[in-house]
Nucleic acid binder design. Sequence first.
DNA 1: GCATCGGATTTTTTT
DNA 2: AATCCGATGC
Length: 725
Amino acid sequence: MDLLRDLNPQQREAVTTGDGPVLVLAGPGSGKTRVLTQRAAYLIGERGVQPYHVMAVTFTNKAAAEMGDRISELLGRQTHGLTLGTFHATCARILRVEAEYLPVDSNYVIYDQDDQLSVIKQVMKDHNIDDKRYKPRAVHGAISGAKNELFLPEEYPIDSYRDEVVARVYEGYQNMLLTSNAFDFDDLLLWMATLLSDHPRIREKYARRFEHILVDEFQDTNMAQYTLLKLLASHHRNIFVVGDSDQSIYRWRGADYRNVMRFEHDFPEAEVILLEKNYRSKQTILDVAMSVIDRNPHRTPKRLFTDRGSGQKIVVKELYDEREQAGYVVDTIRKQVDTKQAKPADFAVMYRTNAQSRLLEEAFLSANMPYKLVGAQRFYGRREVKDIIAYLRVIWNPEDIVSLARIIGTPPRGIGTKTYAQLRTKAQQLGLSPGELLVKMAPDESPYRDRFSSRAARVLSSFGSLLAGWREIHDQVPPVEVVDQVLEDTDYRTYIEDGTEEGKDRWENVTELRRLASEYHTVGLREFLEDVALVSDQDTLEEGVDAPTLLTLHAAKGLEFPRVFIVGLNEGVLPHRRSFDDPEAMQEERRLFYVGITRTEDRLYLTHALNRYTYGYMEPTEPSRYYRDIPRDLRMEEGGNVYQKTSRRSSRIFKPWDEDDAPEVERKKTEREYDPGEKVKHPKWGKGIILNSKIQDEDEVLDIYFDSVGMKKVIASLANLEAQN
DNA sequence: GCATCGGATTTTTTT
DNA sequence: AATCCGATGC
C-alpha cells in the first residue's frame, strides 16, 4: 500500500498498529511527525474512520497546517471535519461551542502575556500589594503554574504568607478576567479540563466523538493537557502519543515529561514503540548530541544512529565579543554561499535568549544579507500592533477592560486616568462594564451623560459614539474594513507617524497588520482575533525565502537545517544563569542544547565570546561547561583565530580545547576492529549499521541495526561480516 | 490631561 | 542599552 511505502519496520508498526493506547518514543530526526501524519491518513484511508472522529494535536499552528496538507495529499482528498490544531486553538474552539456551561460568553477574548500582566498589576494595586516586594511577573508565574496544575483560586495551596498573597491576587485576577469576558492561555486548558470532568454529558459527547486522538510532542504536555487528554480518551482509549523526554524544554511552562510515565501507568495496556534510527543528521552530530545528553541523570540511555555517514567534525570558535561573534557567523555564511557550498536558506543561527538576536541582525544588515527572524512576539508585541488589536477586541467584546484601558486614551482624546476612573465607578454603580456604558453614552440625548461633569460627558460620549459606530459595522463587514474605520476615525497615522524613522517603522507595522486582517475576508473578526492571540513563534517562519533563519533554541524545536550555528555558548547564557540553582532547570538547559544540536543535518558550529555586555558593561565570560562533554575528536577549532585581543583576565579563562581541561568522557582504549557508524553486510540479515562495539571476554561484540530485522548482537569473529563502503 | 525627564530596574525560554 | 515608572511642569 502506498501509504506505507518508505517506512522502516518500527515506523510501519506505529502507523498500522491496532486500536488501543500507543506510546511512540522517538529520538530526534526519527520521523515522528511523519508517523503521526501517516497514522492519521491510515486511520481515515485504510481503516475507514471518519475525519470527524479524529483529533490530532500539534505543537504549532504551522505544524497543524502542514499535517493537514500532508494528510489530504496522502489520501488524495480533503479531510473535512478533522479536528487538527494546537491544544490551545482546539480548546478555544470547543469552549466557544460549549460557552453556556462556562463563566464567559461565546465571544470571549483571549488575553496574552501582556494583558495578563496588566491584570495582575491592576489587581495588586486594588489590593494595595507592594509590587516591589511581590514582583507581578513572579506572582503571575505562580498563578499560571497553579492553573496548569488545575488548582482554582480557592484551592491554591497555602504554605506561607506569600502564598496567601498569591491566592488573593489569583482570586482577584480570575474575577477580573471573567468580568472582562476573557480567558488567558492557561484558562483554555483549565476550563476545558474542568468542563469535561464536571459535565459527564459533555465528556461523553466528546469522548465518543474522538474515536482516535493523536498527540505530538507529548513530553511537553502539562498537567491540564494530560488531564483533558485522559478525559477525552476515556471512552475509546485510542490515544496515540509521540514524544521524546530528552527534548522536553517547557518545564517552566508547566510541562512535565513525567507525563510519559504517567501515560504508561494510566494506560498499562499501551503498546510502546521505539523509533531510533535517525534520518536527519550525520553520525558526528549525533555523537556530539549523545555526549551532551548522556550527562543528564535518570534517563534511559538512547543510541542515536544514522546511515548518513560520519560527516565532518563540528567547528568550535572563540570570539572576542558578541559583535565579532555575529561577524563570524555572517562571514562564514557568506563564504559558503559565495563558493556555492550552500545556499542561504541552509543556515540557521540559534541562541538562548531573544536579546541575542540584535547583534546578529545588525551584522546581517550591515553585510547586506537578508535573514528570517522567527518570533511572533517581535511583531504582535509591538505597541502599535497591540493598540489596533485592542481596538478590535473592544469592538468585538466591549467588556474587555484591559483592552479598553489601553485604547481609551490612545491616541490622546482628553480621557485620562481621572475620567477613566469616573467611568469605571459609574459603570460599576449601574452594573455595566465601562465599555457598555460608553456605548450607551453615544446618543445625543443619552441620560447617562448627566452623570458626569460636562467636560467628562463630552469626551466620553464622543468616544462612545465612535465605539458604537464600529460596533454597528463589525459583524457586517470584513475585519480589514473595521481596521480601516478605526484608523480613520482615530487619525491613528498622525498619532504614530511623527516624522522620525521609528514612526515610519511603526506605521509600516500597522500596515502589515492591516494586510494580515485582509486575509480574513471570508471569515470574521472572531477568527482573526483568535488566530492573532494564538500564533506561535514558529508560525511566523516564512517558507520559500532563501535566507538564513535566526531563532531561539526553543523555537527551533521540530525544525531541521543543513547547517546550524549555536551562538553564545557561555556560562550564564547557555546554560542560563537563572537555572544555576535548580538542578531540574539545569537538566532542561542541557536538553535545550541537545535540541539545538539535533536540528543539524550536516554541519554544526558552536561559538562563544570571551566578553559580554551585561547591563551595558563589558564583562569577561567563561565558555560553556558543555564544551567539556564533547569529545575532542569530534570537533575542531577553526584555524586562524583572528581575534586575539584577549585581556589578562580572559587569557586565564578555561579554553574548551585546552589539554588540561580535556573532556572527562571515557574513551575506552581497546583493540576494536569495528567502529560505530560503519556499514556492514551480514550473510543472513543483509545490510546493517554498527551502533556499538565493545570487547567482551576477548571477543568483539557488536550491536548492529539491520534493515531487515532491526537490532541484533553479533560476535564479530563468528559473524562473517563484510564491510560496505 | 499630557509630554518630558530622570532614575531605577532589567533578561530566559512562549502557547 | 533599553524600557518602565513616577514625578514634575505646563
